[in-house]
């Protein structure tokens, strides 16, 4: 409230409101923190792995047909239904009412599902059989027993 002009006699600062410029940043001596401008937050895995939260479901892979694509038994598949399936995408498809994960082959009007393991045959739709792509696999999560 008081600012001293001379040591002997304190006088009040003006009663009327005074305009002040408020500055948020601290003024520091030494090196400025390189993190200040970023407002850094801890990395959030679900933000990194899930682009479309409303469209993303998690499924568990069961089997060995995709090992050469890096998908092993019990891996978790991040499946994004907002992504438009294209040739060479790894997809979850519905074949005879069941979910299967395979690589989508879509060339010259032909559609098939290719395994990433030479011991498994391709799935080509037979007459009356329908292959519906349910979603596109955008990531897998592998957990190690600890």
């Amino acid at each position: 409230m008081y600012s001293s002009i001379s040591h002997s006699k304190p006088v009040p600062v003006a009663d009327a409101p005074t305009w002040m410029l408020r500055i948020q940043n601290k003024v520091c001596a030494g090196f400025p923190s390189p993190a200040e401008d970023l407002g850094a937050q801890r990395i959030d895995l679900s933000k990194v792995l899930i682009k479309h939260p409303q469209a993303t479901y998690l499924l568990k892979a069961s089997g060995h047909s995709m090992v050469e694509a890096g998908i092993f038994d019990n891996d978790i598949l991040v499946v994004d239904r907002a992504v438009k399936p294209r040739h060479n995408h790894i997809v979850v498809a519905v074949v005879d009412g069941d979910f299967t994960v395979k690589r989508l082959y879509q060339r010259a009007g032909q559609i098939k599902l290719k395994a990433a393991n030479p011991t498994f045959a391709d799935i080509t739709p037979k007459d009356g059989q329908e292959i519906v792509v349910w979603g596109v696999v955008t990531a897998t999560i592998k957990q190690f027993g600890t």
Binding site: Y57, L58, L59, K60, A61, S62, G63, H64, S65, M66, I71, D73, I76, L77, V92, D98, F99, T100, V101
Partner: peptide, 14 residues
């Protein structure tokens, strides 16, 4: 509970 319990996650054949 497919989407709300880890153990209940749907399975895709690989």
């Amino acid at each position: 509970a497919y989407t709300t319990r880890w153990e209940d996650m749907p399975v895709a054949r690989a």
